[in-house]
């Protein structure tokens, strides 16, 4: 063919990796050229930055920190967005018997703190005392003026367990709105995929091996679906032959044991993100019992003995 007449472009995948919300975000979209891709990715990144500003606990004037600053003093009026997110968070707490709890930010780290060199667990009493301010039931909502009140002085809320998933979901919505038909938003391992790859196939997602986070142990094909994984990976200690994860049970204040990793698959990245860690906290039996009763959600867990446990709606192939 005459090189002058060669076709110039087709739809290709474009990717941007950027540190957002303190995490590594990777946005991949299908677009016809680099410039169009950059425009779309800018809009998605702007959305994530907007969410970060509203939810962060690292800046004093964020809505979240205003609520925290007024804990035990007075209700704080919030935006519809933050209010709705808190409403959903509290429903998640009810669903998971408190394994998911946005008031975990109020944990008292002066009593004890997890570190990789610890040789002994704190006593149950000390551990319990460290989470005395953690209780989602003490978040008082007023739908009339969308205000939020934390009953106890010193209570703190944080969106660490749901914010990344929410940002992934929102940025996907922005991208879809401006016409991006296919893509993946990967918020540090909490990801949501829609549309098809350029070769017409659905996306293939690898689930990280808890022994080696950069290596997948299994894969699944999805589209219009989100996947999130929580795991102890290298962050655990062994005390008396038992592995304890850096994930803390918000009800006891003690580190979680028994589960190495939990992966949630469902259509919504926010929900997947919010449910993965509670699965580790609740454990294999209670966690899978919960998932198996719910529709449209699946879970894969690996326990400390490397046994794989799946919800009933997962078929295994080797």
């Amino acid at each position: 063919m005459n090189p002058d007449l060669a076709p110039r472009t087709g739809e290709k995948l474009y990717r941007r990796v950027q540190k957002l919300m303190g995490n590594r975000f990777e946005l991949t979209i299908l677009a016809e050229d680099e410039h169009r891709a950059a425009t779309c990715l800018d809009a998605a990144v702007a959305e994530i930055q907007r969410i970060e500003a509203a939810l962060t606990t690292f800046s004093d004037n964020s809505l979240t920190n205003q609520i925290n600053a007024m804990a035990g003093i007075a209700p704080v009026q919030t935006s519809p967005e933050v209010y709705d997110l808190i409403v959903r968070s509290l429903r998640l707490s009810e669903l998971t018997q408190g394994a998911f709890d946005i008031t975990y930010g109020g944990v008292d780290k002066s009593l004890w703190n997890f570190d990789l060199h610890m040789k002994a667990l704190p006593s149950p009493a000390v551990a319990k005392a460290s989470v005395r301010l953690v209780n989602y039931r003490n978040v008082v909502l007023n739908p009339q003026d969308r205000s939020v009140f934390l009953r106890e002085k010193g209570m703190r809320i944080g969106f660490g367990g749901i914010g990344k998933g929410y940002a992934a979901e929102r940025s996907k919505a922005v991208l879809q709105k401006i016409g991006v038909k296919s893509g993946i938003v990967n918020a540090a391992g909490d990801l949501t995929a829609w549309g098809l790859q350029p070769n017409g196939e659905v996306w293939t997602i690898g689930i990280a091996d808890p022994e080696a986070a950069h290596q997948p142990f299994s894969r699944l094909n999805i589209t219009n679906m989100a996947v999130a994984t929580s795991g102890n990976y290298e962050k655990y200690v062994v005390i008396d032959g038992k592995k304890y994860s850096h994930t803390i049970n918000p009800k006891t204040g003690l580190p979680v044991t028994g589960v190495k990793s939990a992966t949630i698959i469902c259509p919504n990245a926010e929900l997947a993100d919010a449910m993965a860690t509670p699965m580790m906290v609740m454990g294999v039996k209670v966690g899978l019992n919960l998932i198996n009763q719910m529709k449209g959600i699946a879970c894969v867990m690996i326990d400390d003995h490397n046994n794989v446990h799946c919800s009933d709606n997962i078929r295994l192939t080797v």
Binding site: N186, G189, A193, I205, A208, T263
Partner: peptide
Amino acid sequence: FDHYSSASSDLI
């Protein structure tokens, strides 16, 4: 492998 789901981001 298009993407991984994992809890630890830095190792991906």
